[in-house]
Design a protein around this nucleic acid. Sequence first.
DNA 1: TAGGCCATCTGGTCCT
DNA 2: AGGACCAGATGGCCTA
Length: 241
Amino acid sequence: MRRMKANARERNRMHGLNDALEGLRRVVPCYSKTQKLSKIETLRLAKNYIWALSEVLHSGKAPDLLSFVQALCKGLSQPTTNLVAGCLQLNPRTFLPEQSSDPHLQGGGSYSFQGPGLTPGLPSPPYGHLDFSHGAKPLSYVYDGPLLTDCSSPAFDGAPLSPPLSVNGNFSSFKQEVAAGDFPFGLQHYGPLLYAPTHPLDGLMGFDGHAPHERNHTPRERSHAPHERCMTTLNAIFHES
DNA sequence: TAGGCCATCTGGTCCT
DNA sequence: AGGACCAGATGGCCTA
């Protein structure tokens, strides 16, 4: 009897954990009810997402879409990378070109990601490692910005800092999606990403699916104030750029 | 069929 | 003592 009660508690606990993970799936890019990210890929993508947004904050510049996606996909498995690219209506080859003029890449071989993607101790391919014997270009090679050396910048697993996101300011507005009550990163909502933004990041959500400016704070929501200050900062940055 | 992913059970450990 | 948390084991399902 005691064992059965313990089993039931453990089941509930794991269900709670899975609910939380599902919540995480909904707030990271590329949410799809039909094609769910695995637990591990959800965590990896979330890590990349946090890192990418932190880099935006740190650099004070708007990233271009391509660089942002590249940062998101670092260390993800190939299927997940394809999924993210598909969500963003990008051809994976756009950021994993088939032909490379980089002498380091000639003749095929493989390349381990630097920076956020590679987590020591995790399985190598397909995680954190890309075989580009067919000419695929490693993600870290497509960065063109200067290196960051500021130790206050978030780093992944103590790994060397990756270059910041590019600064062309091509973030898109998700206002329509937010107004429609849909989560902006939903599978079907990536068209606007490819167009010129009006107020970049305006539509980015708070924790519970509301754009910051739409919210009326309840006592519970006030605990999210730091996040909203962060979003305000981001908005200011993007409006300036 | 092998490998990945997942849910569940289980026993151990720690905390209240 | 009872609950929370954790990690290992196991079996089912799915896909390449």
